[in-house]
């Protein structure tokens, strides 16, 4: 149990690190959100589950925390994505298609 907990904690902190590295390296706000949301969500989940395994006193509370993170983290990043898209933050030059932008243009005309 303790070994599994330690491994989960190590994997979790590794994913947290990779997520923030992705935030630093990606070219525009949407790709940063991609890296930031997914990697940090799994990182936090795995780390907190590992803590529950390491000390059984914390297990119930860590499960509540995991459920809360899974429910709220996608919502907050979706809200940021929507806000930046509505404010007209451009996609990176590498992008190949933007359906939503065409829609907005049609509505304005």
């Amino acid at each position: 149990m303790a070994i599994a907990g330690n491994i989960l904690i190590l994997i979790g902190s590794l994913f947290l690190f990779l997520g923030s590295l992705g935030i630093f390296r990606m070219p525009d706000v949407y790709n940063r959100l991609q890296a930031g949301t997914k990697a940090t969500t799994l990182g936090a989940m795995s780390l907190i589950l590992g803590i529950g395994f390491l000390n059984n006193e914390f297990l119930v509370k860590s499960i509540v925390l995991i459920i809360f993170i899974v429910l709220t983290n996608p919502v907050s990043s979706s809200t940021i994505a929507r806000a930046s898209h509505k404010s007209g933050v451009p996609l990176t030059d590498k992008s190949i298609i933007d359906v939503c932008r065409d829609d907005i243009r049609k509505e304005e005309v």
Binding site: I9, G12, S13, L16, G19, S20, I23, V29, R32, L33, G36, T40, T41, G43, A44, L47, I48, I51, F58, S62, L65, I69, N73, S76, S77, I80, A83, S84, S87, V89
Partner: peptide, 22 residues
Amino acid sequence: TSFDRLLATDTITLITTALLAL
């Protein structure tokens, strides 16, 4: 942009939650 800063704040919040649990 300010959205990049907000996104960084969001990530730091999540990392801090994990740090408090640790």
